[in-house]
Design a protein around this nucleic acid. Structure first.
Lengths: 193, 193, 193, 193
DNA sequence: AATGAATGAGCATTCATTCAT
DNA sequence: TATGAATGAATGCTCATTCAT
C-alpha cells in the first residue's frame, strides 16, 4: 500500500508508511526497527527521535490510519444524499477503503485484535466520525434504522465491510460491483426497525 | 477460560490450555515458552516433545479450538429444526461459544489476523462443518437464503457473531436474550434472496 | 585478583569473579555483559539465569565481596587479644584485605561512590561484623575508645585503611611493615577519649 | 550544588555546572550529553565546541572543581595561624567545602574511584596547594608532624574529611561544631611524631 | 518421557559524535 | 558561534531451541 499520505514525505511519514507495510507483511513481532529503518531509508536511531518507542510508533500509526479511514468514509459526501443512498454510499466507502488499502486493513485488524487495543486506548471521535454518527442518529429518528446501541449497529453494518474486504484481499472472494450494491442494501435491510 | 477439553488433562492438553490463556492475555509475542511451561506445570523442554516448535504448537491450538467451535455450532441439534429456527439456533450457538470462551475467541481472532493464517494453512471442513454446510445449501435450495458465495454468506451471518462477542467480552456492549433473538433473525433477514 | 572464592568454580562464581576484574579494570560502564560472558567462558544469556539483570549482578557481587571482607577482618582472631593489639590487628586485617585484593577494593570503592549505593540498599551486619561491633563497644566501655557515633569511629580508623590501600595499589605509596604497625597504633591513638 | 563559579555564567560554565549535578545524581553513565544540553539550556552540538569530547569535559570539570577546592582550603588564611590552629582550620576548611558542595564531592569521589583517574592524569600542585604543602613541611620541621610520606599524611588527615562529609551528605551522620573541633584536633594528634 | 541449564541470534533502545544549516 | 536532526555502533536483555542427565 505504501503511501497513505498526500503530504511531502518527511521522515516521520516515511517511517509510518514503512511500518504499515512491515506489520501487514510480517506481524508486529517480526517487524524489527532495524528492518523498518532499512526500508524507510533512515537510521534506526532516528525512529526514536520521532517516536518514544515502538509501542508509541504503533499507536501513532493506528491513529494515522484511522484518520485516513474516517476521511474516506465521507468521500462523495454521503451526508448529502437521501436515505438509503446515504448509508449505502457510506458502507461502500468503508469497503473501498479497506480493499484499496490492504496493508492498512491488515494492520488495523492486527492492532484491534492485539493486547495493544484490548487494553483500552480507544480513539475518540474525530470530526468526520461525528458527521457519520449524526447521519445514523438522523435515520434512527426517521424510523429508517432500528434504535440499537451504536456498537451493535456498527457491527451489523460497517463491521461486515472489513470482514468481506479481508476475504477479498486474501483472494478467497471476488465481489462484483452489482453484488456490492446488493450487499450494501441488504446490510441496512437487516437493521430496519 | 482454562479447560476447553473434556478429556483427562494429559500434558499435551495442559500445554494447549495454558497457551490459549497466555496468548489471549499477552499476544503471540509475549507468550514465551518458559512462561507457558511454568503455567502448565511442565518443563520447557517437554513442549518440544509434543510439538515440533512454537508455530506448530500454535497451529495445533488453532485446530483444537476450531474443533470445539464447530462442535458447539450443532448444540441442541439445529439441523433438526425447521427454517428459520435452525439457522437462528446456529447463529446463537456460535455467539454463545464466543462469549462463553472469551480466551479462545481472542486467540482465534489474533490467529486469523496474523501472518500465520494469512499465509494459508486453511483448515478443512470437519464433519460438523459439513453438516452446517448442508443446512445452508438446503435453505438456499428452498429459496430461504440468497445463493451467494459461501464466504460471503458466512461473513454476513456468523461473521457478525464474533464481532459482537468481542464487543461484549470487552465490556463495551451488553446484549439481552430478547435482543439476541432479534439479531439472529435480522441477520438472516439480510440474506434472503 | 580473580578467584575470591574457595568453593568449586560453578558458573555463578565464574561470572562474579570475572565481573570484579572487569569493573576494576574498566568501570561499571564499559563492563558489558558480552565481554563478561567471554571472560567467564559462558554465554551471555546464562548471566540472566543467575542474576535478574546487571544491577542485580552488581549488587550480588557487592554482597559477595563484603562477606569476604568481613570474614577477613577476623583473621587470627583479634577478638581474643587484649587492647590495643586487638584493634590494631583488626585494622591490619582490613588493610591486608584491601591490598591483597586490589580488584575487589577498586570494585568496592566504585560501588560505594556510585548512585547504586548512594540510593540506599545498605548491607546489614553479618555475624562477623557483629563480633567487630561488640569489640568496639567493649573498648568504649573500658574507656579505651571515645564514645562516638559508630560511623565516625569507623571512618577515623578503618576508613583510613581503604584510602591508604588504594594509594598503595596505585603505586603511589609503599608502606613497610614497621610503618604499618605505627599507623595502626596512631589511628587508635587519635580516637582515645 | 549548582554554581561553583563566581564568574559570569558563560556557556562553558553553564555546561560544567550542569555536569556536576548530573554526575552526582546519576553517575557518569546515565549523564548523557543530550540531557546535559537540556539542563544547561544549550544545544548538544555546542558542547563539542567547548570540549573535545565527553572525557575531556569530565577531566576539565575535575580540574575546575579541584581548583575551587584548593582555594577553599585557604579560607580565613590558616597559613597565618600558629600550630595547631593552622592545621585544624585547614582541616575544617576541607570538611566545610565537602559538606557545602555535596554535588562536587560526589563528583570528585566518583571521578577519583573510576578508571578515568586510576589511569593517571594526576593534577599538578597549584599555587594554593603549594602553600598548603609548605605549611605541612614547616610543621614537620618544627616537630609537630611526623615525617611521613605526603600521601600518607594526607590520608590520615584530610582524607578523613571527605569520608566524614560523605556520611553527613548521605544523612547517616550529623556532626556538631564542637565535635568537629574535637575531630580536627584528634586527627592531628594521630600524626604527631 | 522429562528436566532445566545453556546457548546465541535477535531485538529495542541509548548515546557520543557529526554536520548541514 | 550555535542548533538539533541524524547516524550507527554498542548494550542490556529475551527467548526459541537444544541436549546432557
Amino acid at each position: 500500500m505504501a503511501d497513505l499520505s498526500t503530504a511531502t514525505p518527511d521522515k516521520r511519514t516515511l517511517i509510518l508508511n514503512a511500518m504499515v507495510d512491515l506489520v501487514a507483511e510480517r506481524g508486529f513481532h517480526n517487524a524489527p526497527i532495524s528492518l523498518l529503518a532499512r526500508r524507510s531509508g533512515v537510521s534506526a536511531g532516528i525512529v526514536y527521535h520521532y517516536f518514544e518507542n515502538k509501542d508509541d510508533l504503533i499507536r501513532a500509526l493506528y491513529k494515522h490510519i484511522k484518520a485516513q479511514w474516517s476521511a474516506a468514509l465521507l468521500l462523495n459526501h454521503p451526508q448529502h444524499l437521501p436515505y438509503p443512498a446515504n448509508l449505502e454510499r457510506l458502507w461502500q466507502n468503508a469497503y473501498r477503503f479497506y480493499v484499496d488499502h490492504p496493508r492498512a486493513t491488515l494492520f488495523l485488524e492486527q492492532y484491534e485484535n492485539s493486547p495493544y487495543q484490548v487494553g483500552g486506548h480507544e480513539i475518540g471521535l474525530d470530526e468526520n466520525l461525528e458527521t457519520v454518527f449524526a447521519m445514523v442518529q438522523a435515520e434512527i429518528a426517521q424510523g429508517n434504522l432500528a434504535d440499537l446501541p451504536t456498537d451493535l449497529l456498527y457491527e451489523m453494518t460497517l463491521g461486515i465491510a472489513v470482514r468481506l474486504a479481508k476475504r477479498v484481499i486474501a483472494g478467497h472472494l471476488h465481489l462484483e460491483d452489482v453484488l456490492l450494491g446488493w450487499i450494501a442494501a441488504a446490510v441496512y435491510r437487516g437493521v430496519r426497525p
